[in-house]
Design a protein around this nucleic acid. Sequence first.
DNA 1: CACCTATAGTTGCATTTGACAACTAATTGA
DNA 2: TCAATTAGTTGTCAAATGCAACTATAGGTG
Lengths: 184, 184
Amino acid sequence: MSPEPTADTPAVDPSLDADARSLRRAMGDLIRLVQFRDRDRICCHDVSVSQCHALEGVLRRGPLRLGDLAAHLYLDKSTTSRVVDGLIAKGYAERRRDPDDGRAVLLHGTEAGRALFAKIDDDLHAETMAVLEGLAPEARRALPQLLVRLVRAKANRMGVSCDCCGPDEADGAGNPSQASCIAT
Amino acid sequence: MSPEPTADTPAVDPSLDADARSLRRAMGDLIRLVQFRDRDRICCHDVSVSQCHALEGVLRRGPLRLGDLAAHLYLDKSTTSRVVDGLIAKGYAERRRDPDDGRAVLLHGTEAGRALFAKIDDDLHAETMAVLEGLAPEARRALPQLLVRLVRAKANRMGVSCDCCGPDEADGAGNPSQASCIAT
DNA sequence: CACCTATAGTTGCATTTGACAACTAATTGA
DNA sequence: TCAATTAGTTGTCAAATGCAACTATAGGTG
């Protein structure tokens, strides 16, 4: 269980274990809180949580196919199609035929969609800023990196590929595959 | 938008904004991934995700009332009751009358429940350890604290009180109300 | 003590979310 | 030209969840 520090296992920090427990506890709280969403079913403004994620996907990743959005959302394409229906019904997105492939649709955000998302994004950004404020810069910089690793580990375990970060890549140095995640 | 550094706003780190965006992107991925749970509906072994959280609550917080568990899970008490039904059906928990209050039940974990949870806990702990490994100790130590702040902020916004951390408390110093979260 | 009110849980019911499977339409390749 | 593949949509069903109604117990107050 607790590997002894030897020449090639360079002294495992004894607090690692405790840190892991703390992290899991906090994560558990976060996850439970996040999954409780039906109450104020509306994410923030006029859309459900899924719709909000979908809107973000459509806007951030430019016009994209339904299947790609489904992958991004970790949802079945049928579910995704219906989520998009909702977005379209509210006038935040639209389906257009892909000129290069008659089977496919390209999802575009509308002006209203962009406006709505900008508002939501601002809100969440402000909230996040408030959370980060006053934190040691190194710590807050390390956080996304850590979350990405966590997501990757979970995705791996669940047998899906997370689009945030490629197949895999050891990040011993500064910001390796994380870059590809943040950049988009 | 970008507040100018003055005497009393001690030079806002210009990277704060970028850090916040990175964080939100990673969080988004995490949340989407986590909400995709119906697929392998079974958390890991023999229970659903909700049941897993409930089991953890029952075991970690000793015998507790249904209402308290519901609060912990951010679920309606009716839903919680049914989640517990599932746990009981599988023999992982049991309802007992509260000797001090005939209306209440006290939820107890069974031996099987303890055993199952130990297994799940080990798995997740190992996963978390792997994620944390190789990270700078300060960074990984700061992480739970940060998540707690995030949870608190979200809980606040949603108008619920998160049990992980009390009403609120500025943590300028080392580890303030975070302690109460980790300690439990 | 009797009764009214508040509290703890359970059950009925409707809604939402989601997956899977069947279907349609379009592309690709032999 | 036609079979096989691929992109999306729609039908159907199951699970999760909240709200409201209900039961049973506690706690006060006249």
